[in-house]
């Protein structure tokens, strides 16, 4: 294994983290989808590189699958949804972006702290990647918490899955093919269901603002 490849994977991991931060602070829905697509592309490339570096051909399938699903199919679906819901140019008011960013940095530190013992015992190509993967999972989770519109929340959910997938490939050389296929299918089904929900929420409240869902609470 060459030092160059492992450096390259580290670079991709850094990009992934950067994209997660960007998504945390992005207010425009359309740009959010672009960022998500970019993240998917990075993921596909990193999977392919890991596959090449460790000579595991089944990771190429994963890479192709990621490319098809996360770079082409899901962004396409998301674009259609925001067109149909007519929210393509929507802006979202976010609470205090600098604070969220600072909290994000704390989360990244926490993630590295968590990953430290595992990174020490692991002999995989990129030691730092597990921490980054965890960090991007947590950042996406936080993005879901801070958003009040439904579409960005869905994107946050999908980004979380990206982080998990990255943890699986970069840090542990990928999961068995069956598990990956299963997860891919889950994500696809998940987004279909969420899409249906979005239309229903919209129909019920004339808006995609999930704060309206508070009315559903029983007293």
């Amino acid at each position: 294994m060459s030092a160059f490849l492992s450096q390259f994977i580290n670079l991709l991991a850094a990009i992934l983290l950067l994209l997660a931060f960007a998504m945390l602070s992005q207010r425009r829905i359309l740009s959010l989808i672009h960022l998500f697509t970019l993240q998917g592309a990075t993921l596909a490339v990193s999977t392919a590189v890991v596959g090449y570096a460790t000579a595991q051909p089944h990771l190429y399938f994963s890479a192709v699958l990621t490319l098809l699903l996360k770079v082409i199919l899901i962004p396409l679906l998301l674009h259609r949804v925001i067109d149909r819901l007519n929210v393509r140019w929507d802006l979202e008011t976010l609470i205090n972006i600098p604070t969220t960013q600072l909290a994000g940095i704390v989360l990244v530190m926490f993630a590295f702290y968590l990953a430290q013992p595992i990174a020490q015992i692991s002999a995989t190509i990129a030691r730092g990647t597990l921490g980054i993967a965890l960090a991007s999972v947590l950042l996406s989770f936080m993005m879901m918490i801070t958003r009040s519109k439904a579409v960005p929340q869905v994107i946050g959910f999908l980004a979380m899955e990206n982080g998990l997938f990255f943890a699986a490939t970069a840090a542990t050389y990928g999961m068995p093919m069956v598990v990956e296929l299963g997860i891919a299918l889950d994500v696809l089904v998940g987004i279909l269901i969420l899409g249906v929900f979005l239309f229903h929420i919209r129909e019920q409240f004339d808006s995609l603002d999930i704060r309206h869902l508070e009315k559903l609470k029983e007293d």
Binding site: M144, R211, L213, K217
Partner: peptide, 11 residues
Amino acid sequence: GRIAVYLLYSF
């Protein structure tokens, strides 16, 4: 009743 709060719980 707020999804954000529920997500915060899980977080």
